[in-house]
Design a protein around this nucleic acid. Structure first.
Lengths: 333, 333
DNA sequence: CTGTTAGCGCATTCAA
DNA sequence: TTGAATGCGCTAACAG
């Protein structure tokens, strides 16, 4: 009906049993070179392609993985995706990509969907779900790696950037350069990373004996337009700012535009610092000073960790902490 | 063993047959409200999740799709991916993402892999395979949409940018502005789009009565670094150039850097024009003049076309041609 | 080295 | 409105 060639077709045509074909296809068990040859020929001639889903049903292994990110069009995540996919491809896995667009409901949706697909493992990036919901949604997956997010007492692998350190580095850098009024565009309130960066900012402020003020912090969407808009309002309401930390490079680029809008020169009127060091950061004008993290490698390591856990790996909690690094360009100090 | 809850578990627990559970899960057939309620409760209590692969094996529909792109980290493709994924999500599909990195072997690899996964449909972007290979690889898919590539006499859906027109528009723009020596960084030789743009360039040159010269064309990788490198060599060997057309915006940005390297001012010493109009194009300095195309919409339409073909759609060849549009900023003329 | 039996979890007939 | 039988395409566990 479907016209699809099945293993049975091959077996009949090659005059062997199903198992023999199966063995040839999977390179398992000893097979006489002659029959193996014959089977391979028939496979080739008939254009047979094994069905991964039938195999999956029989073996309880689908050969598929899931990658969930807030937004694939954000270079931060597309770089991670490259790393993840690279490793997955090398290991023979196919990966489902899902973007959540910062929408928790959509996140639970795609997670449920991936569970139904019976993926062998999941890389979940920067989850916006609260601990309780996350725990519930993750229960059905055989192997999990979380990036930039952790979950206490759960056997998941974790790989994350030390964003608290990043926040400190960036803040100290500005403070050391003599800045006195450092504002922070903190990104989405649901972002764990954002909170960590703010924590680092607080810590640095405190260590320097400077007071902190809620008026100096403002949430914003994590993209250029949102950053631009937020920065415009923020700068108008806080004319005393000499420096601005931004949730990520996209927001920082938005802030750069806001400065143009408002007639402020960067960095002389306002210093701007981003986070992530996406390629883009070096291409804008002025080139962005930013607190960088290795995204591609993060993706690669996340996938390696996942593969480990899939075959044989203990379900133990395990954590890799990646160090951020300040990249000084022209937008600050 | 696996601990996974199956439909049989639910049936036993709810004291009904498998079929009743199946009907409840799929909202099919008439079911008495009371038993329906009971089944739903058990499903909830047991945390039952239907197995998409078992369903797939039984129905010959997996609820999965494939998206193949040259490079997910290229904004051109990540924007398309967003559109594709958006529509797929709305329709309840999961999508496998595969990047080929311009490697034909990897492309055939992932296509075979997707066929084995028994995806319901495929969106293949900018395939780098030759017609014969492509035809062979595509034979096993139930529904296909190609972007920026076509295949004669094959029932695939096609959606593509009129890149030949784009090439003409960009060239005419430069010619009209008085440029006399217009070079072209043509991108990967395997790119159909690249060839079309060059065709348009030739057509415009011819229409204007200008000679063309092989010395004015040079292939290059389709990213910033490759573009920068190629532009540097190209500009050194062709000092007479007054304008440079670039395969895409990434290459154009590379060319911008090459100009900095060589001490050339843009656009006064050299005008630079890109293709695609990715967001980035407006953010670099000087902002890029480029020949834009709607990438997100392209992804959306590609997926809509695919969904059409999946359910009921004729397998007829069908083609949507998208018009590019010149976006004039500061890098040219 | 090769074949047989059984079942993975579900949906599609048909009956009742 | 509900249930029983059958098979999707493949592999695991045993034979031979």
């Amino acid at each position: 009906m479907d016209g699809r060639v099945t293993m049975a077709d091959v077996a009949r045509e090659a005059d062997v049993s199903l198992m023999t074909v199966s063995r040839v296809v999977n390179d398992k068990g000893e097979i006489s070179p002659s029959t193996r040859q014959r089977v391979l020929e028939v496979i080739e001639r008939l254009g047979y392609r094994p069905s991964a889903i039938a195999r999956g049903l029989a073996t309880n292994r689908t050969g598929t993985l899931g990658l969930v990110v807030p937004d694939i069009a954000n270079p931060f995540f597309s770089d991670i995706a490259r790393g993840v996919e690279e490793e997955a491809y090398a290991a023979g896995y196919n990966v489902f990509l899902c973007s959540t667009y910062e929408d928790p409901e959509r996140e639970t949706d795609v997670l449920q969907s991936l569970e139904e697909q019976r993926i062998d493992g999941l890389v979940l990036c920067s989850s916006r779900l609260d601990d309780k919901t996350l725990r519930r949604m993750l229960a059905g997956f055989p192997a999990i790696v979380l990036t930039n997010r952790w979950l206490d007492g759960y056997g998941a692998g974790v790989i994350r950037v030390d964003s608290e350190l990043g926040g400190r580095l960036a803040t100290n850098f500005l403070l050391d350069a003599g800045h006195t009024a450092v504002g922070f565009l903190t990104g989405p309130p649901t972002s764990v990373d954002g909170r960590l960066r703010v924590n680092g900012y607080h810590a640095a402020l405190e260590a320097a004996g400077k007071p902190r003020s809620a008026a100096l912090e403002r949430p914003c969407p994590s993209n250029v337009d949102g950053g631009r808009e937020a920065a415009r309002e923020f700068l108008a309401s806080q004319p005393g700012l000499t420096a601005l930390l931004c949730y990520n490079d996209l927001v920082a680029i938005g802030a750069l535009f806001a400065c143009v809008d408002l007639g402020l020169r960067v960095p002389s009127d306002l210093a701007v610092v981003g986070f992530d060091d996406i390629a883009l950061a070096a291409w804008v004008s002025p080139p962005l000073t930013t607190c960088g993290s290795p995204r591609f490698e993060l993706g690669v390591k996340a996938m390696q960790m996942l593969l480990d856990r899939i075959d044989g790996g203990t379900g133990e909690g395990q954590e890799i902490l990646v160090q951020p690094e300040l990249v000084v360009r022209s937008s600050a100090p």
